[in-house]
Every structure is written in C-alpha cells, then in structure tokens.
Design a protein around this nucleic acid. Structure first.
Lengths: 144, 144
DNA sequence: CTAATTTGTCAAGTACCTTGCATATGTCTG
DNA sequence: CAGACATATGCAAGGTACTTGACAAATTAG
C-alpha cells in the first residue's frame, strides 16, 4: 500500500535529517521547522503570509513559530506597517540552521540517488509532485 | 525537496482515507490504525509480535492498541500459552474496518493512477520501496 | 464614526510517539 | 527447587505537531 510506504519513508527521512544536523552542531532543529524556515523571506514574513504559503492555519503557524523561536532560529517583531501584524524573521542561528538543513537534505537525496539512480530520484519527485498538483490546491513556495 | 513532498502527500492521503471511511459508515478510524490492523493474524497477534512486524516499540504498540480498542476495532485477550502475553485480535467491526480501509486506499491509488498512469503509480511505489529496502532494516509484512 | 473584516493569540483537546520504571511471568542454571 | 535473568506488558510523564473555537486589537469599508 502506497500510504504505508509514504509513512515509513517520511519518518525515516525526517529522523535522519534531524540526526545529521545535530552531528553538524545545529541543535534543536525539528522536522517541521524547515517548512516554516524555507518560507521566510530575508526580511521576514508575517504569520498570516506564512500560513497561506504553507497551506495551514494561522494558529498552527503561530504555535510552530513559538517553538522555533524557543529553539532560537527565528524571532518575532512587530510589523511597522500594520499594528496587528507580527513579522517572523531569521536570527543568525536560523539562517545557519536552514542552510544546514538544505545541505543535509540534499546529502540524503544524493544517497537516495545512489540507490535509485539520478533519474530514479527525479522520477520519484516528479511523480509525487504530479499527484499533489492535481489534488492539492495549495500553492508551492520556498522549499517545496 | 523530497522531504516536503513526502510530508504533503502523506498528510493528504491520510486525511483522505479517514474521511472516505467515515462516509462509508466506519467511524473512529485513524490513519495509524491500518498499520496495526494489517499486521494482525486472523487468530490475533501478540503485542510484541506486532511491534516486531511494525518496526516500533512494544510501548507504542500497546498504546496504539488501547486507542484502537476504544474505537472498537480490536480486543485484548490473554494468551493461553503464555501468562505474560496479550493477544490483540479483531472484533467484527475491526474486520469490516480493515477491509473498508483497504478498499478506500485502493480507490485512492486508482485515482492517483489516473493522474500518473498505472505505470507511473507502480514506479512511484517501487522507487519508494527501493529506498526503504536499502536503508530500512525493518521487515515488511501485512499491509506494507 | 460605526460596522465588518483581518490578524494574531489563548486555550483546550487529539493523535502519535518517546523514555523510564514497575511488575508479572517464563526459562535456565546449579 | 531456588535464584538469577530475560521477556512481556502496563503505567506515567512528557514532547511534537496539529485541530477547533473564542477573543481582543487594529484596520478598512460604508
């Protein structure tokens, strides 16, 4: 069953990513963080904007942002243009964390390419993207 | 990034599966349940055996079993051969639930095959299985 | 200026998982 | 058979990631 394969592979890759980042000295990174971090503009992005990009609710983003803030990868600042707005932006650690995450994920993908062949990996990605394009109305941004 | 695609597709398929089962009158099914249910022998299976098959800890299985028991899909009985053992086995609702889960997951896969072509879907599955075979030491049983 | 809308937060609850510890039962050795 | 050890499960606490509902403050529309 496809679902079972998806669950196992997702878990494996998530755990592997966090583990390798730790070994490289980035502590406190969690599998869910790069999804938010990868959607942050360099000047920072508002909660609602992140929610739209990530295809989730503002509440979920606010909560996730709180966790990521505790881990030190982002900080919240008031939006000078809109008194209601809160801008989430990178700390220095956050930028380092994101680039490490990308490195590690790329490294893992290279290993998978070693198993499947480069074409195989590209096919895997494009097949998944094909399903999501047809079934998921969410846009695709940032790290996606 | 591959990980992001995996997360999105997994979530989508999980939610879709549970939603469709509800529409067919199976209530209380959760995405995690078929993984256990699909590893149950017809006579039932012990917690430890399930843990081994599912590649997880006995605690996680025991807890999941409690949830699934509350939902009415399985029941616990003592192992007559081993006083320490607890056998988890299907209720009538559980058998109906599992077969509905398989129907629904198959139906979703057929829809994906409509997007990717049958060959595309088969490729997707075999590519994922290829990675897991090389990287995951867990055995493959039941619904996998 | 009032009313509606947008924005973010708080609070509670759910799903699934982890680790550590306790306890009951079984097996093996002397 | 007793004692030591291993195995099987349960209990408790905690953590991550999410959901829904309600709310107050700020902005915008009429």
């Amino acid at each position: 069953m496809l679902l079972r394969l998806l669950i196992r592979l997702t878990r494996q890759m998530s755990v592997e990513t966090v583990t390798r980042m730790q070994k490289r000295g980035i502590h406190g990174m969690q599998p869910a963080y790069p999804r938010l971090l990868g959607n942050l503009d360099t000047e920072g992005t508002r909660i609602g904007g992140l929610a739209r990009r990530m295809g989730t609710t503002r509440q979920a983003v606010a909560q996730l942002a709180t966790e990521i803030e505790k881990a030190g990868f982002v900080e919240r600042v008031a939006d000078p243009q809109d008194g209601r707005g809160v801008i989430v932006r990178f700390t220095k650690k956050g930028r380092a964390g994101l680039s490490c995450a990308i490195e590690v994920m790329t490294e893992i993908e290279v290993e998978y390419a070693g198993i499947l062949g480069e074409d195989g990996l590209e096919q895997l990605k494009s097949l998944m993207a094909g399903i999501l394009d047809q079934t998921d109305t969410q846009g695709t941004f940032g790290l996606d």
